[in-house]
């Protein structure tokens, strides 16, 4: 299933003007959206954008390279803490925090990637999962820097223009566009070819002169830096973070689940998955507070068992079967 994920990324010949108009309309809608939404829907829209960032970022290591990573939570949390610490020390303005968080996550991912990307399959999956736990433990115990279990309160933001909600919406929108842009550029570059080769056969990729280790580390670092930036924006947005919130293991699982939901093999699949996921989540959290995680589990199990090609693809196939 994953084999088809990135394979169909290469440019499909489409009428250029049509695409241009479509992109312009979509962008215009996204930019104009805050004018027509109240605070509740603003929050939902910002969350969808954040989930898009997480899903597209996971796609670099999980989709292109085919390494089953569960490390999103580690870097989301790392970015959130980096941003929160810098902002509460009042040494940088808000707009710089996601950039610095991304740079920090990129560097950390390169260093940690060197040992753990030597692992494969289950070993890599669990090592990446454990990374988040270790970071959480560090955030818990390094009280002087992180406030430990008490968490960090961020100073309130004074936006230069518009409301606070709008500022975070646009920040998340810009980040989502950057992530999407990176995805498209990487998919069409030599690096993207290297990623796909590694997924199909790492030994063969090495044999034809691809530096597999270097490529894997770059993919892992992309999958770390972008969630790190999202974490930094999230920290300012919610105003208070603690270790169990930002290092929540569920964040690591949400990203691949969203990609699976939307269907693998398209650039916009992850975004659609993020939207579907959010609708589920809002529905579930609002009605089943006691059984929130269990309901998510039921969705995941149903998804894996009955719709392994994603929701849209399954519906399309069913329709074709009937016709």
């Amino acid at each position: 299933m994953l084999a088809s994920l990135a394979a169909s990324f290469p440019a499909r010949p489409l009428p250029r003007i049509g695409v241009g108009v479509l992109i312009a309309v979509a962008l215009g809608l996204l930019i104009a959206l805050p004018l027509g939404l109240d605070n509740y829907y603003m929050r939902l829209a910002t969350t969808v954008l954040m989930y898009c960032v997480l899903a597209w970022s996971w796609n670099f290591i999980g989709g292109f390279v085919g390494y089953p990573s569960f490390g999103i939570a580690a870097f989301f949390g790392f970015g959130a803490y980096a941003g929160a610490i810098l902002l509460s020390a009042k040494i940088i303005p808000f707009w710089l925090s996601p950039i610095l968080a991304a740079a920090g996550c990129f560097a950390v991912a390169v260093v940690i990637g060197m040992p753990i990307l030597r692992l494969r399959g289950h070993y890599f999956a669990v090592a990446s999962l454990g990374l988040g736990e270790v970071f959480r433990e560090l955030a818990m115990s390094w009280t002087a820097l992180t406030g430990g279990g008490m968490g960090i309160n961020l100073p309130p933001m004074r936006p230069a223009f518009g409301t606070e909600a709008q500022t975070f919406y646009y920040a998340m929108l810009i980040l989502a566009l950057v992530t999407l842009g990176t995805t498209i550029v990487v998919a069409r570059s030599r690096l993207g070819v290297a990623f796909r080769c590694i997924r199909q056969n790492e030994e063969a990729a090495n044999m034809i002169g691809i530096d597999a280790t270097r490529s894997k580390i770059i993919a892992f670092a992309f999958s770390a830096a972008l969630p790190g930036a999202a974490g930094a924006i999230y920290a300012s947005w919610v105003g208070y973070i603690d270790p169990s919130d930002v290092f929540d293991i569920l964040n690591s699982v949400k990203a691949p689940v969203m990609v699976l939901l939307g269907g693998t093999g398209t650039i916009f699949g992850p975004a659609i998955g993020a939207l579907i996921y959010l609708v589920f989540e809002e529905f579930v959290t609002h009605h089943l507070l006691q059984f929130h995680a269990g309901m998510l589990g039921i969705i995941i199990v149903a998804l894996v068992l009955f719709m392994p090609h994603g929701l849209l693809e399954t519906l399309r196939r069913r329709k074709q079967g009937q016709a």
Binding site: M1, G297, L305, P308
Partner: peptide
């Protein structure tokens, strides 16, 4: 049903099952 599928699939499935069982115990 998924025993031959890639690592990501089996891991995600058992994770989902764990969420269900753990939430039942919590409740």
């Amino acid at each position: 049903r998924v025993v031959d599928k890639p690592v990501l699939i089996t891991l995600t499935l058992t994770f989902g099952l764990d969420l269900i069982l753990n939430n039942f115990m919590l409740a």
